[in-house]
Write a protein that binds this DNA or RNA. Structure first.
Lengths: 342, 342
DNA sequence: GTGAAAGCGCTAACAA
DNA sequence: TTGTTAGCGCTTTCAC
């Protein structure tokens, strides 16, 4: 069943059918009516592959995410999908699972489907796989990589806004020894976030203490491991920020397991504000990164290349802000040192 | 850049290029070599829309899920994606978010892209939207709807296996008053699960108590609401099963908030075994539904229609089994009645 | 072992 | 306002 069949049934040509489907206004209303009715009757759906073939563009945006298991990404995905679909595009999703061997294959999937652009939320270290993307003139929008070029834009996370609020909040609560559990070592996005942490610390006249700063892996396990180390220190931090909420969950779990209380013994601040943050006990104070804003920013960034895929890219920024819940509280006057550790 | 360009550069015809790309064995090795090299050099990727156009099938399977925010689905998605991609297919994902207005549009997305089949994990009530699917001869595999036909298969969840284990486990712990918080009212999948619960209860010679059975909504909120009701009963259940883990999380939250202890005051059993189950405190005893098995079953069910999309469907079943963690324990000798409630 | 050519369904330029 | 037609890139039959 194709447009010619519809055309025959409606007594018109396939060109007219095409015009009706695409809402051209130079078709007589009665004709439109007649064609519409036939389409309805036979439940006809046009074949997008023909259009894609003709135009060389598929109306599809690729979305590459690292770890769908981290609740942040499904939430993002949902926003991105709805924006894309509302605008009559399609989304081609791929997860790479931090396993970079798949990256090459993922890029290929995008390329053979002739996507009109790729939103890359996975911050792998290597840049090599993307060369085929730029070589094939597929616009790319990255997350917090800081590099832009022809057909390449970047969405930076403004950690500053949220970090400053967080530090102010902690300082008001009397915290001076503030720790940080980061993301995976080597990822620019992790590094930006630690740097923002250090700067924010200095801005409230506190000194960063290297012992208090640990790497995680953006997962529960990393949060657990790092917090275990922090708790075993003679001199512990009284508050800890984490690179994402999932890390915070891991950290909290260890704290609770050690018989300590949040926030009485130690305050925790997460990052992302996944829905879970509101469910975990105690509810997590966190730096909110608005998923819808982020998704919209990626979409707009992609649209920027609509006319010409080689247009020079732009730097976009999305803000973060502090959401205060119950995992932060006044600093203990004195940290119980050593005695209660392990 | 198309196959003709490659052909020119390699001094062959486009037919030969096609043969090389598709691994035909009737091309001379040297020719293969030569063509491969050119493809490599110019980073050529064939355009699948041409193939889709020619064959009328896209090598894509649609996946429709209700609520990507429930961790079960991302975990499923990940398995399904990897199976599909490993087998040189593509996945077109769509979420409907329990908002059935989107369903029609979602089906359209599948249809215009000429998917080779649809895995439908969303158990909406209405069947009408799927008519366009069967009408257009797109194979459909549903989850626990129990109905099969030409081009229509079903994957049933064998609740029995897990429920029996759960009941045995609870009975051994001395529980007699066992409650249930179900899914959304009206969904066949919810109903199957309650029915399985009641039957399992009877099998261990316990009587189902209607007061102890509540509806939820597969989300935290539903678990909270239902558990609040259960706790306000004069005569409370000593153990509660839930329709999914997220519901269990909500239920646990309420219990903890009321100052009760799990499993000392009340035991909880979830369903799904999302990764979260292992993280929540105390770690959740749950009926595991293996995501990979489920995804594989859906994939195989879809493949069943490969040769002829109108082949008669099959009934598939995936098992569940009990994973014992720390949210279940011995029944209290006497339930503290009334006094501690609210 | 390789090439020529038709055709998949749609769109847009051009013709009427 | 509507129709005719070429062509998007690939596969495959048939011919060589």
């Amino acid at each position: 069943m194709d447009m010619r069949d519809i055309a025959k049934l409606a007594g018109v040509s396939s060109a007219t059918v095409s015009r009706v489907i695409n809402g051209s206004n130079l078709v007589r209303p009665e004709t439109v009516e007649r064609v519409r009715k036939v389409i309805e009757e036979v439940k006809f759906f046009p074949n997008t592959s023909a259009t894609t073939l003709k135009y060389g563009r598929s109306g599809t945006y690729g979305l590459i995410i690292p770890d769908i298991t981290n609740p942040f990404f499904p939430e993002f995905l949902k926003c991105f999908e709805s924006i894309v679909v509302e605008n009559d595009h399609e989304m081609l999703m791929a997860t790479t699972d931090l396993h970079s061997g798949h990256m090459q294959q993922t890029i290929r999937r995008m390329l053979v489907r002739r996507v009109d652009g790729v939103a890359l939320l996975a911050s792998e270290i290597e840049t090599e796989p993307f060369e085929s993307l730029v070589h094939n003139r597929v616009p790319l929008v990255t997350m917090d990589r800081g590099h832009i070029a022809n057909g390449l834009s970047d969405v930076a996370i403004n950690n500053k806004s949220g970090m400053d609020q967080a530090m102010l909040h902690l300082k008001e609560l009397g915290h001076k020894k503030i720790g940080y559990i980061g993301g995976s070592a080597g990822l620019t996005i992790s590094e930006h976030r630690v740097e923002a942490f250090v700067r924010a610390l200095k801005r409230v006249d506190l000194v960063p203490h290297p012992e208090f700063m640990r790497h995680g892996n953006y997962r529960v396990t990393g949060g657990m491991a790092a917090m275990t180390e922090l708790l075993s220190l003679k001199d512990r931090p009284t508050a800890v920020l984490t690179a994402n909420d999932v890390t915070a969950v891991g950290a909290m779990r260890v704290i609770l397991k050690m018989g300590l209380t949040i926030p009485r013994d130690i305050s925790i601040i997460g990052f992302d504000d996944i829905e879970l943050s509101d469910i975990v006990h105690p509810p997590l104070t966190t730096l909110r990164l608005n998923r819808y804003d982020l998704a919209k920013t990626f979409y707009d960034a992609l649209q920027h290349f609509k006319a010409d895929s080689r247009t020079y890219g732009k730097r976009h920024v999305v803000k973060t802000n502090l959401v205060i819940r119950e995992s932060t509280g006044p600093a203990r006057k004195r940290t119980a040192t050593g005695s209660s550790a392990i």
